[in-house]
C-alpha cells in the first residue's frame, strides 16, 4: 500500500474504476503572513480509515487539518499554493462552495465547543442550516437526532433532557455531542484536532472508543499530541516537523521501525 510519498499520476481521479482517495494534497504550501506553516506537503489519506498526524507543537499538523475544510482561512493573511483534493475535487478551485465542502467534511475541535443552544438544536444545527425544505418533517428530525446521539453513545444519557443547555454537559459528553452534531448531514470525512486534549483519561478512552467505532463509515483524520493514542487509535500515521511530512506509513510500521531518525527521536520522546 502506498501513501503520500507515492507519485501516482495526479489525474488518477479520471481513471475508471478507481475511487479517488478521501484527501490528497499536491505540493501544498501555506503561509500565515510571512511565516510558512506548510512546505510542499504531499499526503494521501485513504477512505474509510483512521489516519493520525503527530509532531511537535507548531509543526503544521493542525494547519494541514484545518486546510481540508478551509476553516484555516478564518484568520486573515493566509496564502496557499499547490493543490488539495477532497474526494477527488480540488477544494481550491474558484467555483468551490465552502458550504458544500463543509457539509462533506466535519470538524471536531480541541476544546469541546457546543453552541449556546439546547442539546437537540446542537445536534440538528447542521441539518437545519443545510435544509431548505419546509419545516414539516418533525419525525425525520427526531430520527436524525436519535440516531446521531446513539452513534456517539450519548442517547441514553441525554434522551430525557434534550432541551437542556448543551454547555451544562460534562466535557466528555460535550465532545461526544460535537461529534454527534456532524453526523446528521452525512459527512464523508471527520477531522479531529486533538479531540481528547481537554479530557481526563476516562473521557479520552471513551472518545477513542467512539472514534474507533466510527471507522469504516467515515474517513477520520486525527491530530494528536499523545503518542499512545496515535499508536492505539490510528491505522496509518504521518509524522510532521517544521511544516513538512517527514514520514507517512502504517502506524505499526512507524512505531516499530521508523524510517527517519527524527521520527524515532520524536516517538521516543527526545524532543517535542
Amino acid at each position: 500500500m502506498t501513501f503520500g510519498t507515492s507519485r501516482r499520476s495526479t489525474t488518477c481521479e479520471g481513471v475508471l474504476g478507481e475511487t479517488p482517495p478521501a484527501i490528497r494534497t499536491v505540493g501544498l504550501n501555506l503561509w500565515y503572513g510571512d511565516f510558512q506553516a506548510l512546505k510542499d506537503v504531499e499526503i494521501e489519506v485513504p477512505r474509510g480509515s483512521i489516519t493520525g498526524m503527530i509532531g511537535p507543537s507548531g509543526c503544521g499538523k493542525s494547519t494541514l487539518l484545518r486546510c481540508v475544510t478551509r476553516i484555516v482561512e478564518r484568520v486573515g493573511g493566509v496564502r496557499t499554493t499547490g493543490g488539495l483534493q477532497v474526494l477527488g475535487h480540488d477544494i481550491y478551485a474558484p467555483d468551490v462552495e465552502l458550504v458544500q465542502l463543509r457539509k462533506r467534511v466535519g470538524m471536531v475541535f480541541q476544546r469541546p465547543n457546543p453552541l449556546p443552544l439546547s442539546i437537540r438544536n446542537n445536534v440538528l444545527f447542521g441539518h437545519a442550516i443545510h435544509t431548505t425544505s419546509v419545516r414539516g418533517a418533525k419525525a425525520e428530525r427526531q430520527q436524525l437526532l436519535e440516531s446521531a446521539l446513539r452513534e456517539v453513545m450519548l442517547w441514553d444519557k441525554v434522551k430525557d433532557r434534550l432541551d437542556a443547555r448543551a454547555i451544562d454537559l460534562s466535557l466528555e459528553e460535550q465532545q461526544k455531542l460535537c461529534i454527534a452534531r456532524l453526523l446528521p448531514v452525512k459527512p464523508s470525512i471527520l477531522l479531529m484536532d486533538e479531540p481528547c486534549s481537554a479530557l481526563d483519561p476516562d473521557g479520552t478512552a471513551a472518545i477513542e472508543q467512539l472514534i474507533w467505532s466510527l471507522r469504516g463509515e467515515y474517513t477520520i483524520l486525527i491530530v494528536t499530541h499523545n503518542m499512545a493514542q496515535a499508536r492505539r487509535a490510528t491505522e496509518q500515521c504521518a509524522f510532521m516537523l517544521g511544516g513538512t511530512v517527514v514520514e507517512y506509513s502504517k502506524t505499526e510500521t512507524m512505531f516499530a521501525s521508523p524510517a527517519a531518525k527524527r521520527t524515532a527521536d520524536y516517538i521516543e520522546g527526545r524532543y517535542g
Binding site: 463543509r102 453552541l115 448531514v185
Partner: peptide, 11 residues
C-alpha cells in the same frame, strides 16, 4: 469558538 464551530459546519 461558537462562530468557528458553526462555520466549520457550513453555516
Amino acid at each position: 469558538g461558537y462562530r468557528e464551530a458553526a462555520e466549520a459546519m457550513g453555516a
